[in-house]
């Protein structure tokens, strides 16, 4: 109940101020350059990584990226830069 209340407050904040949503609600920010690079901020760790698939843990649920020839160029506590041919991105509710 408390969590729901917090979410509502955050949602209200995002709707009524110019503050970016990812900052306030701790959401992932995903930047893509064509289908070559994908840059994800605010992840919570790698669950699975292979040449065709990257599964990241998020605050809520998971993020599944599919494609080919994946290489994790950089990985930092909050950021990930993935290189390869990206085919799809999917949010999986946890």
């Amino acid at each position: 109940m408390a969590r729901k209340w917090q979410n509502k407050v955050q949602q209200w904040f995002v709707d009524h101020t110019d503050m970016p949503a990812d900052v306030i609600m701790d959401l992932p920010r995903i930047t893509m350059i064509g289908r070559l690079h994908i840059y994800i901020e605010n992840h919570k760790g790698v669950i699975a990584f292979s040449k065709e698939e990257l599964r990241l843990s998020m605050k809520q649920g998971q993020l599944l990226i599919k494609g080919q020839n994946f290489i994790l160029k950089t990985i930092l506590p909050e950021e990930i830069l993935l290189e390869g041919t990206i085919k799809s991105i999917e949010f999986i509710d946890g």
């Binding site: 760790g45 790698v46 669950i47 699975a48 990584f49 292979s50 040449k51 994946f70 290489i71 994790l72 160029k73 950089t74 990985i75 930092l76 506590p77």
Partner: peptide, 26 residues
């Protein structure tokens, strides 16, 4: 091996250019 990656990141050990080469190998 993913566990290894996550631990490294947590301990702020620089790790980059990660590639999967086999079922149990990176």
């Amino acid at each position: 091996p993913e566990a290894f990656i996550n631990r490294c990141v947590k301990e702020s050990i620089a790790i980059w250019d990660i590639e999967r080469v086999g079922d149990r190998e990176i």
